[in-house]
């Protein structure tokens, strides 16, 4: 697959292109981080972050590539890893208390959301993911979901979102959710 073909696929939200890229560039990116004092686990995590950041940009159609995808990914990895190293060195000098409570709170919220999403059903979950994370166009969402057209996708998304808001608001007080 050429870079252009990969990009075209990603723009349509074809996740097999993501798999392909992941596999193709894995060694190069992960080895770069390992060579720079990272563990395999850390390297994998950074690489996934980088790849998903790329996926989001590319799927939304907001990215115009002027270099090879691998070059681009490589530089994202380097930057993310540099930041991570910074963060680690700062952390070792500071107290870590604040961060722990933070992630607990996040976990709670994630659980809550996943419960609601599961209640809404697979279709709604996918639409909301594609719209809010992958940032696909309504046309692409319709295509991927097998809807008649973008209008159908838009209506469905609207209904799903409304239902989700309602579920979350009624089950849990807004205040809980906010902080």
């Amino acid at each position: 697959m050429t870079d252009q073909e990969i990009l075209d696929r990603i723009k349509k939200g074809d996740e097999s292109a993501l798999d392909f890229l992941y596999k193709k560039n894995y060694r190069m990116m992960v080895n770069m981080i390992i060579k720079n004092n990272g563990s395999e686990e850390e390297a994998k995590d950074i690489y996934q972050e980088a790849l998903l950041a790329f996926w989001q940009k590319a799927a939304s159609g907001k990215l115009e590539m002027t270099s090879k995808i691998s070059t681009f990914l490589y530089s994202i990895c380097q930057n993310l890893w540099r930041k991570e190293l910074d963060r680690k060195s700062r952390l070792s000098n500071e107290e870590k208390d604040g961060i722990v409570t933070d992630s607990q709170d996040l976990e709670e919220r994630a659980k809550l959301l996943n419960m609601c999403l599961n209640d809404l059903g697979e279709t709604c979950k996918k639409i909301l993911f594609y719209f809010y994370y992958d940032d696909l166009s309504m046309d692409d969402i319709a295509y991927k979901m097998g809807f008649a057209n973008a209008d159908t996708a838009k209506t469905k998304k609207y209904k799903c979102k409304k239902e989700l808001d309602k579920l979350i608001k009624t089950r849990f007080s807004t205040q809980d959710f906010l902080d």
């Binding site: 996740e15 993501l18 798999d19 992941y22 596999k23 894995y26 060694r27 996934q48 790849l51 998903l52 996926w55 996040l106 919220r109 994630a110 809550l112 959301l113 996943n114 999403l117 909301l128 993911f129 809010y132 994370y133 992958d134 989700l164 808001d165 979350i168 608001k169 807004t174 959710f177 906010l178």
Partner: peptide, 26 residues
Amino acid sequence: FQQSLLADIQASRKSELKARLNNINI
């Protein structure tokens, strides 16, 4: 409310995709 909800939706999708990637055999 929406701001934190969208952040949560995004986080949820992200962990779904990460799980997908973790299943790929290198």
